[in-house]
Design a protein around this nucleic acid. Structure first.
Lengths: 112, 112
DNA sequence: TCACTATAGGTAGCAACCCTACGCATTGGA
DNA sequence: TCCAATGCGTAGGGTTGCTACCTATAGTGA
């Protein structure tokens, strides 16, 4: 997958991954990979800066810990992040509907 | 709609608009707006450079004409553009499936 | 002991691409 | 006469994901 197409959608994916409970960055990356059957295997250089951005924006909150001699930064959703995730899902649905309508060619099972 | 999320998907939309037959840039912009019920109203500063990009890439072919005293640049799909459109549709389907899978939360309206 | 891999975090710089804000020209209506 | 709609265009900027690189620890195997 050309992940460049992710522009503007990555934040929602990261928030969704954290919805089930707190996780550290590396685990988020792996959860995303597993959730998509390996089709979305983001480089760490994408994941970490994005998490920092989300934290700066107040959508997630991070805290340091040490597990097995390795330092970890564990993130969890804030209340604002939860609202933002809901908004991202709404936005995605509308976006997908719009693109599908404009792209045509039977992308949507609905119009068959 | 925040069209900024379009990153990487605009080209396919423009190609799809030209699939029905040759059109000039302004008409493409309006066709896209109409096809999406006004939800995707792109500024001309987005449409024209994108069309130039597609032409440079050999996916569309443009020609000048004058209609009602106004010069128009009419574009039509090339064979390569037609193939690229098919690829864009495939790519969109996979992309949408991946994002929906990762975003969760009742992703697909298909099951209506 | 040494090398390598997996795990875990990070940064700098780049490139793509869409947007904002303009500019020009013509036609037609108020 | 002025303005809106039509129609084309460019310059510059900002967001954002990617490539490429760095640091560090634990564990495995030669």
């Amino acid at each position: 997958m050309r992940a460049e197409a992710l522009k503007g959608h990555l934040d929602g994916l990261l928030l969704a991954t954290l919805e089930g409970g707190p996780q550290h960055g590396y685990a988020v990356k792996e959860a995303l990979r597993d959730a998509t059957g390996g089709r979305l295997d983001l480089p760490t250089g994408t994941v970490y800066p994005a998490l920092h951005r989300l934290e700066r924006a107040g959508l997630i909150k991070g805290s340091w810990s040490v597990v097995g001699g390795r330092r970890r930064r564990t993130y969890e959703l804030t209340e604002q992040g939860r609202r933002s995730l809901a908004g991202a899902r709404d936005h995605w649905q509308e976006f997908a509907a719009v693109i599908s309508a404009a792209l045509g060619g039977g992308p949507w099972p609905a119009t068959n």
